[in-house]
Write a protein that binds this DNA or RNA. Structure first.
Ligand SMILES: [Mn+2]
Ligand SMILES: [Mn+2]
Ligand SMILES: [Mn+2]
Ligand SMILES: [Mn+2]
Lengths: 219, 219
DNA sequence: ATTTATTTTTAGACAAATCTAAAAAATATA
DNA sequence: TATATTTTTTAGATTTGTCTAAAAATAAAT
């Protein structure tokens, strides 16, 4: 089944609000979507008729199983595009959300499948959020900062805590990007600096401060 | 100024019809957009008010300078995405049009600029049509088949005449794709086969039939 | 337990884009 | 030139998504 862009935006935002509280209420969804409560009520009825929403007047609402599946698919598209924008087009982390907000509605199945393969099946988006797979499974991934990774482990960069231009400049210099594979070689006790190997580049040393700001995951 | 998806589809299709005849008429646009003439008339009025269209009742219509600029920008986005879909995601030529039909409406300037750079500023889309540059300039490029290229020339693959799975299989084997750089080494008179060098791969020989089906351009 | 305040829903209107059916204009034909 | 045909436009209705203002339900406060 196919949904309008508006419907998709409602579905996705209900999904996100559900992560915080069991039942979602009209006002908070209206705020999230920058619209009026009356408009939300109208759409709730429509989503209920399409079996995407469990909704009782005045009591709040939540997505049905079907609705959840649709939502997760939209989230998948959104985060894959975000990953693409950062790793392939060189966007900074804070610029990609609004663009992905549009791209997520291009809902050709084969497109997303091929994009996923092209990006090498990434598991975490540039903001550190998990990317659901094609079956709607959301990977549970424990991220940790490089400062906490044991020696000789290979990890993948998933996000960066401090997103200032200053750290960005440094990371570019190290060839470190979202999705980059890094091997932790050894830790030096004097200043807790760490020798790492970034992709196929020669090993280099990063400071403890940098290490603490880079979040990574295994596999 | 920003336009709705519907407006953009009208503008782009008027642009294309203009390439064939000076003035565009209501019926042919309606046919192109799979809609009714009455709907077209409504939109014509709207586009005229926005100074995108020169329109006189019953006389036909054409885009203004402003309208043309908008149209060319949409065409640019459409063809860049088509190029992306084929060269990066591995879509076949005949599958990309409908997807690009949606992607073309994501109209973030920086996105298109970065996509263009990522793709290495391609000049021809997978169907052999020119890609307008950021200033709206449309490159005039003479394409020719590899069979007609003189020896020792470097060329870029722009399109393939025969798009059957059979030739596709062969081209994949040769690592030939849209946008691939090819150097024509020498021609063998016995069967008119041609030795070429594809990208950084070792030189190989293609038959005259294959050569005739691959269209290329210089630079 | 009332009163007050907040949240949610309804009623009715509106803009964008579409449609059908009928009228008007332009073309083609006799 | 008069008539028939085709093309285009108008008139009026519909669908989707939105809004404001008012009513109804729920929650909080006295
Ligand atoms: Mn969105
Ligand atoms: Mn994200
Ligand atoms: Mn389109
Ligand atoms: Mn094309």
């Amino acid at each position: 089944m196919n949904f309008s862009i508006t419907e998709e935006n409602y579905i996705k935002n209900i999904y996100h609000l559900q992560q915080q509280s069991e039942l979602v209420n009209t006002n908070s969804l209206a705020f999230e979507l920058q619209t009026k409560p009356a408009s939300v009520t109208d759409m709730l009825k429509k989503l209920q008729i399409k079996n995407l929403l469990d909704y009782e007047k005045y009591k709040g609402f939540r997505l049905t199983n079907k609705g959840n599946k649709v939502a997760i698919n939209i989230v998948r598209r959104h985060r894959l595009w975000e990953f693409f924008l950062v790793t392939k087009l060189g966007f900074e982390w804070d610029k990609v959300h609004s663009i992905a907000e549009e791209l997520e509605h291009v809902s050709n199945q084969e497109l997303i499948q091929k994009l996923d393969r092209f990006l090498n099946h990434p598991q975490i988006d540039p903001h550190g959020d998990p990317i659901p797979d094609g079956n709607g499974k959301i990977p549970i991934i424990h991220q940790l900062s490089i400062a906490d990774v044991i020696e000789n482990k290979k990890v993948i960069v998933s996000s960066v805590a401090n997103q200032s231009p200053a750290i960005l400049e440094l990371l570019n210099h190290y060839h470190i990007n979202i999705g980059t594979e890094i091997k932790i070689n050894q830790r030096f006790s004097f200043d807790r600096s760490i020798e790492i190997k970034v992709g196929k580049y020669a090993p280099c040393i990063i400071s403890e401060l940098v290490a603490k700001n880079i979040f990574v995951h295994h596999e």
